[in-house]
Structures are given as structure tokens and as C-alpha cells.
Design a protein around this nucleic acid. Structure first.
Lengths: 194, 194
DNA sequence: CCTTGTTTCATAACAACGTTACGAAACAAG
DNA sequence: CTTGTTTCGTAACGTTGTTATGAAACAAGG
């Protein structure tokens, strides 16, 4: 029989708590101002918990980013019935409702400031609604017959780029981002129409 | 007459040297691994120089980013005679040749990991070739008559998004980015055609 | 009930970073 | 040579991620 010792506190529920608390801090103060000490204090534990449950700060942030991609996929799934345009609108809506998380998800990996690249399968899952929409639009003869993945990646990039320029506030200071986004969605639709 | 004291070493040429050295380090090790001590050592000076010449690390990085936008604008200007498609190709070429810098320019601001947002007028200058190309294509009747700035921002975003997804390696692991980019440029052209 | 043994985790130490404060270095003037 | 002033390299500080240490917590055996 196994010798039981001090009871385990670094359990899976604390893991969840740490994820929530970290996501909150990221959303409130931005990724840069999130420290392990703050995370631990907010979860009423010590920094050791992060190391025993995640392995370190980058793995914690990676887990937060993965959760972000899952939440994003859910919102895409909900918008799926509306077709491609609806996916595009939902994309920006989600990003504007989770600005800091979106910035961490894409900007973090881009800048290389944290080693928090999303797990490939999670990112792939997030892209699935778009892939399906592209495939069915192609099947219906409404979309160009280029390889589905190529079309989907291209559309994703076009949509992501506008949102990320808007969030980074790079570009003309008085830019009308909503108008630009709407016009871009229309252009995307026209550009890929069969 | 002014009382001369210890000769000035923190001169403008040292400022340039610091910019070059920092850009080198960013390009070699990525923005995250650049420390002021390394920068100072590489420029054979002390960290004080960064503070007296720039004010701090964020201002140094901002200056590097601004230089990046200027170099980017030069490459866009060189591609200007080829029209919109040529600008698009040059965009990705420059990004792939200055990956770390590009990541810092856009990912840094997006992730908020450093306070290094580009100076607005420098970013605006970088966008000028695109604005001009859009304006003249509109004048020639080849492009939609939506507000020039809206069209330009939308196109920039579409192009930037694909490049940034490629650099961040977010997306399908076996994605054919070159193909996706080429197809996207064609789609952009079709989508905004008059 | 106390001792022993084992596991678990909070605290404290460590190294590295950005930043600031200090004081030596370097030269003009008297 | 001394004094005065400016300049900048060195060293100190506070904070960060990470690691090491030892106390806390409980089961088993006497």
C-alpha cells in the first residue's frame, strides 16, 4: 500500500483556478504586466504551484492561449450557420471582446516575447469552422476551386490582419476600422467568388 | 564662454551605433533576448548611454522600430512603379528578409510586451506608397471608388495578416504559405477591382 | 501517543533584468 | 596645481523567473 503523506493541494481544480486568474490578469493588465507572484497571490497559493502544475510561466501562458483558441473556436462554431460573412463578423467581435487575450494569442507568438505558441492541434481546431465553410461554399459552386486549405488560410490571414492592425493601433490615427473591416469582408467575398 | 568639461562621448554617432547594434541583436536573437547590458557591451559603452541618448529600453526599441518602418517604406517605394501587385510581393519579401524586425514592429505593439509603438507619422509614411497606388488605380478606373484610406487600410491588413500568420507559424503546420499568399494577392485584386 | 518516514509545498535564496544614484574621470579656467 | 563643472562608467536597488531548502502534514509502527 502506498504511504500517504501531506495532502495534495496542487490539484487539477487549482490548475483551473490558475488558468482563470491568469486570463483575468492578462485581460486587465496586458500580458507584459502579469507576474507569477501576482498570479499566485490572486489564486491564494505560491509560485511553486505554477511550476508543479504547468512547468513554468511559458507553459502557463501557453495553456491560457490554448484556452483562448478554444473559446474562439466556440464563437466561430456558433456563427457557422451564417456562412462565411457571419464567420468574419464573429471573428472581429470575439477579438474586440477579448482584446488582451487576442493580442497574446497572436502578438505573443509573433513577437516571440514569450514562448507561448498555441498547440498546433488547438489552433487547427479553431480553424475548422472556416475550413468547413470554405469547403461547403466550394461544393455549392459559390467559391473558387483552389485547394480548400489555401483558400481558408488566405481568408483567415486577410481577416486577422485587419483586426490585428486595429488592435495594435498601427495605421492612420483616424482610421475608420469598422468601415474598413466591412469593406474588406465584402472584397474578400468578391475576390474569392467563383 | 561656456565652461567645457569632460568631453562628450554620448554623441549622435554613438546613437547610430546603438541603433545598428540593437537591430542586429534583435535580428539574431529575437526581441525578447535583447538586454541593455548586451547592447551596451556590443557598442563598447555602458547602459547609461542608452538612457542619455534614448531615455530607456522602450524608446530604444521604438527608434529601432521606426528605422524598420523607414526601411520598409524604402522597399515599398522601390516597388511602387510595378503597381499594387508589385507592392504586395515586395511586402512579403521585405518581411521574410527582416523577420525578427517585422515581428517586433507588429507583434511587439500587438502583444504590448514592450512599449514600442511606432511613431504615427513614420507608420503613416510607410503606408504612403500604398495610398498613392490605390489613389492612382482609382483614378484610372481600375479600383472601387470607396474612400481611398479605407481601401488602403483594408488591403494592408489583408496582406499583413497573411505574412504575420506565416511568421508566427500559426495555422496548419504544412501550409503552403507562398501559394496562399499568391492566391490571396489575386483575390485582393479581384475583390477591389472596379 | 510519540516517533519515524515520506511526500508536498511555501519560503527564501539566486541570477538576471531595467533603472537610478553615486562618484570618479576629464578637461577649462584661474 | 587647484578648483569647478560636466560627463559617464560602476555599483546599488527593486523586481522578475526560477531553483533549492526545509518545514508542514499525514500514515505506519512501536
Amino acid at each position: 500500500m502506498r504511504l500517504m503523506a501531506r495532502p495534495v493541494v496542487h490539484t487539477d481544480s487549482l490548475r483551473q483556478e490558475l488558468l482563470v486568474v491568469t486570463a483575468d490578469l492578462v485581460d486587465r493588465d496586458g500580458p507584459a504586466r502579469v507576474t507569477l507572484r501576482d498570479v499566485a497571490a490572486a489564486a491564494r497559493t505560491s509560485t511553486t504551484a505554477v511550476y508543479s502544475l504547468f512547468g513554468g510561466k511559458s507553459q502557463l501562458l501557453t495553456a491560457v492561449v490554448d484556452d483562448g483558441f478554444r473559446s474562439f473556436r466556440d464563437s466561430q462554431l456558433a456563427a457557422s450557420p451564417g456562412g462565411l460573412q457571419s464567420l468574419g463578423v464573429a471573428y472581429r467581435d470575439w477579438a474586440l471582446q477579448h482584446t488582451s487575450l487576442y493580442r497574446l494569442m497572436f502578438g505573443g507568438a509573433l513577437a516571440g516575447y514569450v514562448d507561448c505558441q498555441p498547440s498546433p492541434e488547438v489552433a487547427a481546431d479553431a480553424m475548422e469552422p472556416l475550413l468547413d465553410a470554405v469547403a461547403s461554399a466550394q461544393a455549392a459552386g459559390n467559391l473558387l476551386e483552389a485547394p480548400t486549405e489555401v483558400v481558408a488560410v488566405a481568408i483567415w490571414g486577410q481577416v486577422h490582419g485587419l483586426v490585428s492592425l486595429e488592435l495594435a493601433q498601427v495605421g492612420p490615427p483616424d482610421a475608420d476600422w469598422a468601415a474598413a473591416y466591412g469593406a474588406a469582408l465584402d472584397a474578400v467575398a468578391r475576390g474569392w467568388a467563383a
